[in-house]
């Protein structure tokens, strides 16, 4: 990817993309600086203050344990961003390895892609549910379970791109010059996959946040004592008539975070080499 000045200029041509970028910066700073921003300990239980409406001491109100929602949202950004990155890294690393190898070696490709196709026929949430049940509830395990779902998509895309690039003149030239498989794969093919993969990563991040929130909601996501936004929503459903603010704030934060990633991904894709556009 050519990170020139004009690239950024074009990327941020639309105002909405700038808004998206600003929100992302805010969320990421919330995640990094949580202890400095949060007014209360997010885990501190205080039964006397339970289910308080938003007010001047508790900006977003308190939950059924009397914990401060605002502080939990701030710390929630940390978990949410961290787990999102976890899924992206897991799915991209393994997806690219499987996808490019399958695209490069035909027989292996047939075998791996066959399995990946079958796995893709499983509804993502059912797959993630089953994987969490197998691995047990835990932050890393949920990342792996959701990562596995998106791994298949990344692998499929990488596979398609690799097939395409393999036939490009420069790759064929390198092969003709006697370059080994590893060299061709790592020096010629994978570097050319980077920009579409970054775009894919942005969307994966957005989808992964939604998927993990859904798992949290079903009670099989990140362990419930960790204040992820999804977990906060999950425990709010018992109080929707009495304490709707429990539902409101974490939801809004999920929506704007996912939205910013989507906006950002869209802008990146528009700037992308048109050769790859069809695949994404």
């Amino acid at each position: 990817m050519r990170l020139s000045k004009s690239f950024f200029k074009k990327l941020f041509r639309r105002k909405i993309t700038i808004i998206g970028a600003v929100i992302l910066v805010i969320i990421i700073s919330m995640a990094l600086l949580s202890p400095l921003i949060a007014p209360y300990d997010p885990m501190k239980i205080n039964p006397i203050d339970r289910l308080q409406k938003p007010n001047s001491t508790h900006w977003f109100g308190t939950d059924n344990f009397g914990r401060d929602i605002f502080s939990r949202i701030i710390y929630g950004a940390r978990i949410t961003v961290l787990s999102g990155f976890g899924v992206v890294i897991f799915s991209i690393v393994f997806g690219v390895i499987l996808g490019s190898l399958s695209g490069y070696f035909d027989t292996l490709g047939m075998f791996i892609m066959r399995i990946i196709d079958v796995v893709m026929a499983f509804p993502p949430i059912m797959l993630a549910l089953a994987l969490v049940a197998i691995l047990g509830q835990g932050l890393i395990n949920v990342i792996v379970a959701v990562g596995a779902v998106y791994l298949t998509r990344t692998a499929r895309i990488t596979y398609g791109l690799t097939l395409k690039i393999r036939k490009d003149a420069f790759v064929e030239a390198a092969v003709a010059e006697g370059a080994g498989n590893g060299r061709v794969l790592f020096l010629h093919i994978i570097p050319n996959l980077i920009s579409p993969i970054i775009v894919q990563a942005t969307f994966t991040f957005a989808f992964a946040l939604l998927q993990m929130a859904a798992l949290d909601f079903l009670g099989v996501g990140i362990p419930p004592q960790i204040p992820s936004w999804g977990n906060m929503l999950s425990s709010s459903q018992d109080y929707i008539t009495r304490a709707p603010w429990l539902l409101l704030f974490p939801g809004i934060f999920i929506v704007i975070t996912v939205l910013s990633f989507n906006l950002f991904g869209d802008a990146l894709r528009d700037r992308l080499d048109p050769k790859f556009k069809d695949e994404l």
């Binding site: 939604l210 859904a214 929503l233 996912v258 939205l259």
Partner: peptide, 20 residues
């Protein structure tokens, strides 16, 4: 813009809000 927004909302959250 709306389509993008709709794609960014967790379904269960939308459902609970509609229910309220």
């Amino acid at each position: 813009g709306f389509a993008m927004l709709a794609a960014s909302i967790p379904t269960f959250w939308l459902g609970l809000n509609l229910m309220i």
